[in-house]
Design a protein around this nucleic acid. Structure first.
Lengths: 231, 231
DNA sequence: ATTATCTATAGATCTATAGATAATGC
DNA sequence: ATTATCTATAGATCTATAGATAATGC
C-alpha cells in the first residue's frame, strides 16, 4: 500500500481506558481487525503491510505481532471472524424456508432465502460488513482465496443445492452446480461494489446499491435456471 | 510471492540467439510479459516482485527496469497487451450479429455473440490467454482494477447494451445494466478457474471447463433477463 | 556506434524479536 | 504478578540506478 495514505493516527486517546484487561484486549483486537479488514478489502493480502494496519489503528507495529503470529494469521482471522455469522444466518433461513415450503420448494424461494438474507446483513451490518463483502469478493476470484471458502461455506451452499435439486427434479445435478457457479460469480461481484457499473451506466445504476441488487438477483437467477432444464 | 517457488531459471540458453536486435527485444519482452501475466494472475500486483518475474524469465532483475519504468508499468502493459484483441473480436461479432439479425435481435443471440466469442478465445488461445483471464478476473472485483476496464472495454459493453435494448424494448434501461452487472460477475468468475466448484461438486464439475460454461451461460443469462421485464 | 544484458550497490521498506515501560490484578 | 504496549534494532527483502560488458549494426 504505497499510494493511499493511511489516516493520521489518533493523537488524543479518545477512548476512555477500558476497565478490565480482557475488555482492553477485546477492544484493541477489534480495532485491529476492522482496520485490517478495510485495508485488505482495498489492496489485498500483499498490498497491505502490518505497519499500515498499526498506523491506521494508532498503535505500534510490534503490537501486531503480540496479537498475531504473522500477517497471514491476521488475514485469516479477518476472514474467520464473520464467516460463521453469514453462514449460520443463511443456514437458518434455508431451514425455515424448506419447512414452510412443505415439500414443494421453488427455485426462486430458495434463492430468496439464500441471497436476500445475506444482502440484508451486508446492508444493515454497518461499514464492517460492507468491507467484509469487498474483502471476500476479491478472494472468490483467486485460487488461494477461494480455497478459504470451502471450510466455512460448503455446508450452506450444499444445503442450498439440496433444496434446488428438490425444486428441479428434472434438471441434471451438474447443471445445478453450474447454475450455482453463475450465481456466486454475480453475488460476489455485487459485493465488490467496484464502481464500474456507475461509470458504465453513466450514473443510472450504482454498484453500491445493494437494495437494487437484492430486488433483482434472486428472480433473475431463478429464471436463468429454467434454461438448464432442457438437455 | 513467498510461498510459490519460481521455476529454476534456464541454465542452458536453449533459445538460439535471435538474429536482429529488434527480434531479441521483442522476444525478451514477450517472455517478461508472459511470466508477469502468469505470476500476477496467481498473486496479484503486490504479491509479485520484479525479482520473481526476472527469476522466472531467467534474466537479471535490473533488466525489468530497462524495459519498464516500474512494476506498475509492467502490470499495465500486461493488461493492455491483450485487451484490444478481445475487445475488437467481440465488437466484430456483435456487428456481424446485428447485421444478420436484420432489425430483430434477440437477447440470447446478442449474448452468444458477446460471450461465446470470448470463450473461444480463452479456450483456444493457449496458456497465455487462460492466465490473462484469471488476471482480469481478479481485477474485476477490486475498485482500482475495475477502473482499468473502463477505457478498453466500455465500447464493446455499450455496444452489447445497445443491442440488448433493441431486443428488449419493454425492459427499463436500468434493468439492462443490472442484468449486465450479473453477467459480468459470472463471466469474470468463470475465467478465474478458482477450483472451488470442483471441490464443492465433488468433481462433478470443473471450474476450468470453459466448454461447459460456454454451453450454458448465454442461455442462462438470456433467461434471467426475462425476469426483468415486469416492473 | 547502438543496444541488450549484467554487476554492484544504495536506500527504502518490512518483518520479527528482545527487552523496557506502563498499566491492571490480586 | 500479569498483561498490554512501546522502544530499539537486526536481518531480510525490494526497488532503482550507475556503470561495465557483451552482443548486434553499419
Amino acid at each position: 500500500m504505497t499510494r493511499t495514505k493511511a489516516k493520521t493516527p489518533r493523537k488524543a486517546k479518545k477512548k476512555k481506558a477500558p476497565r478490565t484487561k480482557a475488555e482492553q484486549r477485546a477492544e484493541t483486537l477489534e480495532q485491529i481487525l476492522d482496520a485490517a479488514e478495510f485495508l485488505f478489502s482495498k489492496h489485498g493480502l500483499h498490498g497491505v503491510t502490518l505497519r499500515d494496519v498499526a498506523l491506521k489503528v494508532g498503535v505500534h507495529t510490534s503490537l501486531m505481532h503480540y496479537y498475531f503470529e504473522d500477517k497471514f494469521a491476521l488475514f485469516k482471522t479477518v476472514f474467520v471472524r464473520r464467516a460463521p455469522v453469514t453462514s449460520e444466518r443463511r443456514m437458518k433461513a434455508l431451514d425455515q424456508y424448506e419447512k414452510n415450503a412443505k415439500g414443494k420448494p421453488t427455485v426462486a424461494g430458495a434463492l430468496h432465502a439464500f441471497l436476500d438474507t445475506d444482502y440484508d446483513l451486508y446492508m444493515s451490518g454497518g461499514e464492517g460488513w460492507k468491507n467484509y463483502g469487498a474483502f471476500g469478493s476479491q478472494l472468490s476470484n483467486t485460487p488461494e482465496g477461494a480455497a478459504m471458502f470451502d471450510e466455512h461455506f460448503d455446508p450452506v451452499v450444499l444445503r442450498l443445492i439440496g433444496i434446488l435439486r428438490k425444486a428441479m427434479p428434472d434438471v441434471p445435478e451438474e447443471n445445478i452446480f453450474w447454475g450455482y457457479h453463475f450465481i456466486t460469480g454475480s453475488f460476489m461481484h455485487s459485493l465488490s461494489r467496484s464502481g464500474r457499473l456507475d461509470r458504465l451506466s453513466n450514473g443510472l445504476c450504482k454498484s453500491g446499491d445493494l437494495d437494487a441488487v437484492k430486488a433483482r438477483m434472486a428472480e433473475f437467477m431463478a429464471a436463468g435456471f429454467s434454461s438448464l432444464r432442457k438437455r
